[in-house]
Write a protein that binds this DNA or RNA. Structure first.
Lengths: 156, 156
DNA sequence: GTTCGTGCAAATACTTTGCAAGTCG
DNA sequence: CGACTTGCAAAGTATTTGCACGAAC
């Protein structure tokens, strides 16, 4: 897995950015986590190795990594923005319950060849997709139905 | 179009929430805008009619409308979070350039029957989808290619 | 009349910035 | 060495909260 960190390091340099321990460490943490981490989590993990890496560096680095396409950012309802490496081939897309905020990953294959279609049709390059489906999970849905009945009963 | 505001008003009440002028006005503004508005824009428009509606009310109301599913929130890179009514049948999904932040709407039909698949497969109700595709637009892509050549030239 | 919602101001959280000192290439 | 990065502290934004008053049902 460190191969990808090194590849990323290379890419950073190619793009004319310097390779600093902080940047490399942040990439490492994200790669290792293999999932979404928020700013706070990233900072904590980085500081275990380099205790005085500052929050602003984490912000600045994530900004940089976002614009180079090395990391992606996602916003799930009820959650702080989170980050993961763009190369992670783990599941990215989520269903979130509007009410209890339960999160479920979704089957990537449902998207079909959307990715390729978009690249071709709109001439965008290095696309990464982020799909968030918000709705009521089954449990909350039942609860809501019941509450509605209750309030109707009360009003009669 | 006010039909939808009234329908929303009804729904709010059914769910046991009170119907206040502020809430109704915010729904009205969102319905009329027929597109994404951020908190600041919403507040300004609401205040044209009711000058002393407070920012906190706008925050609180949007929170409420989100959890009832009447409005959806989206986060585009480089933009403040924005809101629109969930019933708007306008285009929701976006391609964003990682570099210049240009935004392009995408053809909904590319998604196929994803919506239905998700509802069936995961038993979620009242789903709304929010897809963000981030990549480099053609213009920025060319620019980046050139920059890379330049830096390679320099290093030789 | 009660309960819920609002406005205001203050508190909190989040993110960005200026600048001197340090580091990468 | 020179340009780019960082850490720190401070500034700037954004969002949330407590509470007394007012409004909806």
């Amino acid at each position: 897995m460190d191969i990808t960190v090194e590849a990323s390091n290379e890419l950073l340099r190619k793009l004319g950015y310097r390779l600093t321990p902080q940047r490399s460490m942040i990439l490492h943490v994200l790669t290792e986590a293999n999932g979404h981490l928020n700013i706070e989590q990233i900072t904590k993990r980085v500081q275990q190795r380099y205790p005085n890496v500052s929050l602003s560096t984490v912000y600045r680095t994530l900004e940089l990594l976002k614009t180079t396409g090395l990391v992606r950012e996602s916003h799930l309802p009820g959650q702080a923005p989170s980050y993961e490496t763009a190369t992670n081939d783990t599941q990215h897309h989520h269903l979130v319950c509007r009410r209890c905020h339960a999160i479920q990953h979704m089957d990537e294959t449902l998207l079909g060849n959307l990715h390729e279609c978009l690249q071709e049709q709109y001439h965008f390059h290095h696309l990464t997709l982020d799909l968030v489906a918000v709705g009521y999970c089954n449990v909350c849905w039942q609860t809501i139905q019941e509450e509605q009945h209750t309030s109707q009963d009360n009003s009669q």
